[in-house]
Computed example of a mutant assay.
Amino acid sequence: MSEPCVEHWLLAHFQSINLSQNRACDFYEQLLKKYIHDYDKNDCVLLKKHLNKENIEIAITHYPEIGKIPLKYFINT
């Protein structure tokens, strides 16, 4: 389980999101289905089809905390 849920993060690839919004994951899943109609959290092929470099750059802009992930987990300072 992730906090916030993965759908919240995925939604940032397509639209601005409210970082203070605290809703159940199914709320974000329904919003995400506007962009990925047949969204299934377990379908990596489907996600790969819809997410690309451009979407990832958009997500970082929409969700600044994403940019801190490498610092937190992968870069030793």
Rank of each mutant, 00 (worst) to 15 (best):
C44G: 10
L31K: 14
P70E: 10
N22D: 13
L31H: 05
I36R: 02
K41G: 05
C5N: 11
H13T: 01
K33S: 04
K48Y: 07
L19A: 05
K48A: 10
L31Y: 04
I58T: 09
Q21M: 08
H8R: 14
E65P: 05
S20L: 10
H50N: 10
G67Q: 10
Q15F: 01
N52W: 04
K33M: 09
N22W: 07
P64V: 05
C44F: 14
Y28R: 04
S2N: 15
W9D: 05
I58K: 07
E54F: 06
F14L: 02
K68Q: 14
G67V: 03
S20K: 15
L19S: 08
D40Q: 15
H50V: 02
K34D: 04
Y39L: 02
K68G: 07
E54H: 11
P4H: 11
I60C: 08
K33V: 02
C5V: 07
N76Y: 12
F27P: 00
W9A: 11
H13A: 03
E3A: 14
K49L: 08
N18I: 04
D43L: 06
K41D: 05
F74M: 09
N18R: 09
K49A: 09
Y28W: 13
K41A: 07
K68Y: 12
K49W: 04
V45H: 13
Y63E: 07
P4E: 06
S2H: 14
I36D: 00
P64E: 04
Y35T: 00
C25P: 06
K68E: 14
N55K: 13
E65Y: 08
F27Q: 02
A59C: 05
C44W: 14
N22F: 05
D26I: 11
I36A: 04
N52L: 03
Y63H: 12
S16P: 00
S2K: 15
M1G: 14
D38S: 14
K33Y: 02
F14K: 00
K49C: 04
I56G: 05
V45Q: 13
R23V: 03
I36H: 02
L46G: 02
H62D: 01
K41M: 08
K34Q: 13
Y73V: 08
L32H: 02
I58L: 10
G67E: 08
Q21Y: 07
H37W: 10
N42M: 11
L32W: 01
T61G: 05
G67A: 15
I69M: 11
E65Q: 15
E3F: 15
C25V: 06
E65D: 15
I66L: 15
A24D: 12
L71R: 13
D40V: 07
K49E: 12
T61Y: 08
D43I: 04
K49V: 06
L71K: 13
A59W: 00
C25H: 10
R23Y: 06
E57A: 10
C5E: 05
K34M: 03
S20V: 09
L11C: 03
H8V: 08
I69W: 06
E7V: 02
T77A: 10
H37I: 09
I75P: 01
E3M: 13
L11P: 01
L19T: 10
F27L: 04
K48E: 12
Y63I: 02
A59P: 00
L47K: 08
G67R: 12
P64W: 06
H37T: 13
K72W: 06
